[in-house]
Design a protein around this nucleic acid. Sequence first.
DNA 1: CAGTGAGCGAGCTTCCGCTTGACTT
Length: 765
Amino acid sequence: MGENLVIVESPAKAKTIEKFLGKDYSVKSSFGHIRDLSEKKLGIDTDNGYKPEYLISDNKKKVVSELKSLVKKADKVWLASDEDREGEAIAWHLKEVLELEEARTRRIVFHEITKDAILEAIKNPRDLDMNLVMAQQARRVLDRLVGFELSPVLWKKVKPRLSAGRVQSVAVRLIVDREREIRSFNSKSQFRIEAEFNPEGTKPTVKVTAALDEKFDTEERAENILKKCIGADFAIVSVEEKESKRTPPPPFTTSTLQQEASRKLGFSLNQTMKAAQNLYEAGFITYMRTDSTNLSKLAIGSAKQVITDLFGKEYSRPRQYATMTKGAQEAHEAIRPTYISNQEVDAGAAEKRLYTLIWKRCVASQMADADIIKTEIAIGTDRIKEQFIARADRVVFDGFLKLYTESSDEENSENSGEIRLPELKTGQAMYPLIIKATERFTQKPPRYTEASLVKKLEEMGIGRPSTYAPTISTILQRGYVIKESRPGQVREYRELRLESEKITRHSLKENWGAEKNKLFPEDIGILVNDFLIENFSSVIDYGFTAKVEEEFDSIAAGKLSWNKVIDKFYKPFHTIVETTLQQSRPAAMERVLGNDPKSGKIVSVRMGRFGPLAQIGGSDDPDKRFVSLAKGQLIETITLEEVLRLFELPRNIGEYKGSEVTAAIGRFGPYIRHAGNFVSLGKEDDPRTIELGRAIELIDAHQKKEADKVLLAFPEKGISVLNGRYGPYIKRGKENFRIPKGRDPKALTIEEITTIIEKGGKTKK
DNA sequence: CAGTGAGCGAGCTTCCGCTTGACTT
């Protein structure tokens, strides 16, 4: 046992640091915060200066008792948690809980895990910064008060188990607001005129594509231009060349890693973070929850070496990047390979791919700018004043582009490839091969992906690297939003073509508006969002976090006391909570859509106990009918026609073997039901039109498939052995049991099965 | 798992940020 005990937050970090420090130092981890407010109660005395009541949670008791016994044996204790608000608080909680005496306790900080940085830190200990600790306490107490007072309001006024909070409610609001923006967006169409020219003196196969910068609102105006171009002589008016540079993007932070892994690898936030965690624990990368783009001197030097070896000296350009993000605390380095010389690592498939991405991004960030020559050629005729412009980028020196290009969120980034132009001179004649006026529609604002939502939250200074993925998981789990893909629609557009001195008119089709893995609001999310905005607009305000962060900064600077800041917020907030509980009525978002043409009864939609529903007949109508809204339908936007179609199902389509056959759409899509069995319908069958003959065909096929699944059956005991998704298993009633390894499931006797059941090798559900 | 849309109302649910397990399917 060493004479010095160093406590850091992460066990992987502890392992590395221990190697640097030698025998006299023992390095342990606190596994993050060691205590927190109670999980069940508010844990804040709102009548006595908001005194928080901290508890050591059950899963931290073991860590704390281990640390306690190590403290006893140590001469000096070094609190080495991160240098940010949370880290300072962790150090203070450790000091309190471990009852560390001032004289043998030191607070040290470092921003990178290198030997020099650690030794330097040990040489420069400081005292705990209690102002910073109190700023953290204010943050913690504020979040608890908001979350634990707002959520119960939702339980009473909307539905149990819902939640609201400073971060998650803004995330939901962004998605709801965006959906409404999309809905109210008026897509306008304009005509874009593009031409292909063959330059004078080149082979007939050489084509130069150029377009007018102006767009035309009507087909008539576009056609006028084309008409004037009939028989016109074109020539190059000007050739301009401009030198430009492209600079590499900085190395990854958590948020940019999540975005690029989503765009380039198609990873969800959780997949990315899981793979990154594995790489970190294996020692392959630095810490993956960071808001900093800094690289250690060591890493920059190592990158220089690697780049020189791989690409040559002219490709190396060491640099440090400034972090631009609002509220960044920069306690760690950027995410980078621990050893930049390792181009690949031995790990799982996802880990390997993520590592390569991290390696490329980090190395590229230390490479030279790319030199690009931008060429702009104007082609004109005296018939029209507008000019056709051809643009091209020529890479003179590729620099970092040799290794890495950042992806963009824009869906149609056509100009990503390099476009080359032949040698062209002013005055050179250009022969038009075709001139097209194509109708183009303005783009609606894009829906958020998980990663683009994180980007937005980070830009707003809301949430932290450690919470981005969990926050998105929460709003998905609450049912506020749903992540899914939706097919697009086919849209017609017009095109006029001028070819061989003749204008022809065409009507073409394009697929439009398909969404892949996007976040859509659900009714309950819209309902909760609107309820919160109506009653608690200040807390759900996009600027709320920024405002309170300023106050936390003042607390950290010693200019404000933490409980005064809380009091100023809590007094008015709590009053609104009370009046909302008393006054506001339960929220249901009811909309009356009109009358049912058959019965004349009123048709309405609203939020019911189990989700959104449509209703025919008023609340006092004894014969009122209900139906759930289908996936993708919203109370806010559904039409009377769509609701009436919902009531067409379930549909009785006849009788088979003495039982009724019905068709409907359930939670898992369209199905037919017969004698207690459900048969899913594929794309080729529509439950509204399917006929009995086809239904019987499907029922028989389904029954045959089910029979094949049964390996053994003991109907008198209600026990069967079935072949399932995860292999053979035993089924008794609704309970499933695993079959011990190495047993032939078909050879089991009923006695053997009952002993397996008694031993209780139960599987979940 | 393919339904429900009301009821006596017990007892429960919930936040944001630090950090990893110990689990089955």
